[in-house]
Amino acid sequence: MIRALALLLLMAFPAAAQTFDTSAGRVEVTRMAGGLDTPWAVAFLPGGAS
């Protein structure tokens, strides 16, 4: 239930960003994907169709 609610909130406010002051000025941290189960690594796919 709580999980479902969290998911609903996530979908309702997908780009909720938090801001932080850093040595490079103010930055925004945006949640891009959630609901991951013990994620270990992320890799960007350069070029190509998808």
């Binding site: 945006t30 949640r31 891009m32 189960d37 992320v42």
Partner: peptide
Amino acid sequence: LWFLSEGDGALYRVTPAE
């Protein structure tokens, strides 16, 4: 800058604030 939070189960992106 991107990072994965294991505890949150989430992927985050860091950009300069507008």
